[in-house]
Amino acid sequence: MTEDGRTAGFMALPGRTEDRREAFAGALADVVRVLGLDVPAGSESAGGLTWEHGARAGLREVWRDGVTLSDEAFDALLRAAVHDPNPSFNRQFVEPALNAFGHRRVQAALLAYLLTGTDPERAGAARAWYWSALDLRMPLVRAEHPAPADDGTDVVNEWYEAALREFVHNEHVDVRRCVLPLLPLRKSSYPAELHDLVDEAVAIARSHPDEYIRHRVEDQVGD
């Protein structure tokens, strides 16, 4: 992702180290309920993998055919994106929210999760942020109450500062794993008062016991 928040080239994000499937099942059930989807339970109970696959398939049809989303749908989509255990499939919730409600509102909601959520929610918000600068390519997905267009540049800058502080001060491994790949580690990306924090973030990552974090930081700053 570039310094202005646009996606330059997608990189792999790590999976969770904790099993959060139950939380995701509840979030996905909310999306299904709000959108009025009819998802058969299949051979497993609601929340099982068969039901989840059916719900995801139903959502793909909704996005393709077009839908008008309420504010309740926005909240449900963002919650599902944050709790989705799959760092690729969470795009299925972020992208329609972007198209209906705009970059600023989606990014502001993810920033709120980063600032005030539980550690799993903070990690999930970082994973969802990965998709938050996508171009708008779902013209049939609209908001019930559309907001004026806005690029949300100030929210992106707030995210970078908050993510830098989170990486340095939060020792939760999933949070650090998910924040790091999208975190600029050049001092030029931050005001002067945060330059020491950039150095601290690099030092933490380089000496971290987690192999992914140690390798990821070298990809970003070099030897």
Rank of each mutant, 00 (worst) to 15 (best):
residue 113 Y to M: 03
residue 84 D to V: 11
residue 1 M to T: 03
residue 24 F to T: 13
residue 156 V to Q: 07
residue 39 V to P: 04
residue 125 A to Q: 11
residue 33 R to K: 11
residue 29 A to R: 09
residue 82 V to K: 05
residue 168 V to P: 05
residue 114 L to W: 03
residue 155 V to Y: 00
residue 77 L to I: 06
residue 167 F to L: 04
residue 11 M to A: 12
residue 143 A to G: 15
residue 63 W to H: 12
residue 202 V to P: 05
residue 21 R to D: 13
residue 51 W to S: 01
residue 50 T to V: 04
residue 213 I to A: 13
residue 70 S to C: 10
residue 102 G to A: 05
residue 91 R to S: 15
residue 217 V to H: 14
residue 101 F to T: 04
residue 153 T to D: 07
residue 205 A to S: 11
residue 75 D to K: 13
residue 94 V to S: 12
residue 13 L to P: 06
residue 22 E to C: 10
residue 190 Y to I: 15
residue 144 E to Q: 00
residue 120 P to L: 07
residue 198 V to C: 13
residue 141 V to H: 06
residue 73 A to V: 01
residue 92 Q to S: 14
residue 134 L to T: 10
residue 59 L to H: 04
residue 176 R to K: 04
residue 90 N to A: 13
residue 176 R to I: 05
residue 31 V to C: 08
residue 122 R to V: 11
residue 10 F to A: 11
residue 162 A to L: 00
residue 2 T to M: 00
residue 138 M to A: 01
residue 211 E to L: 14
residue 148 P to R: 08
residue 207 S to A: 14
residue 77 L to T: 04
residue 177 R to S: 12
residue 41 A to V: 03
residue 67 V to Q: 15
residue 196 D to A: 13
residue 78 L to M: 14
residue 44 E to W: 02
residue 147 A to D: 09
residue 207 S to Q: 08
residue 19 D to I: 12
residue 39 V to Y: 01
residue 213 I to R: 06
residue 71 D to Y: 09
residue 54 G to C: 06
residue 125 A to G: 01
residue 169 H to T: 14
residue 119 D to T: 12
residue 214 R to Q: 14
residue 186 R to G: 02
residue 161 E to A: 04
residue 118 T to P: 10
residue 108 A to V: 04
residue 168 V to K: 08
residue 200 E to Q: 12
residue 31 V to W: 10
residue 203 A to Y: 03
residue 48 G to R: 06
residue 188 S to N: 05
residue 49 L to W: 10
residue 83 H to W: 14
residue 209 P to I: 05
residue 180 L to Q: 09
residue 148 P to V: 09
residue 148 P to Y: 00
residue 163 A to C: 09
residue 76 A to C: 05
residue 165 R to N: 05
residue 57 A to L: 07
residue 198 V to D: 11
residue 7 T to H: 00
residue 38 D to F: 01
residue 219 D to Y: 14
residue 84 D to W: 05
residue 210 D to C: 14
residue 107 Q to L: 01
residue 176 R to M: 07
residue 104 R to F: 02
residue 177 R to V: 08
residue 220 Q to R: 15
residue 35 L to C: 03
residue 65 D to A: 05
residue 222 G to H: 12
residue 197 L to S: 10
residue 199 D to W: 02
residue 33 R to H: 07
residue 181 P to Q: 14
residue 141 V to W: 06
residue 19 D to V: 09
residue 183 L to F: 08
residue 103 H to I: 09
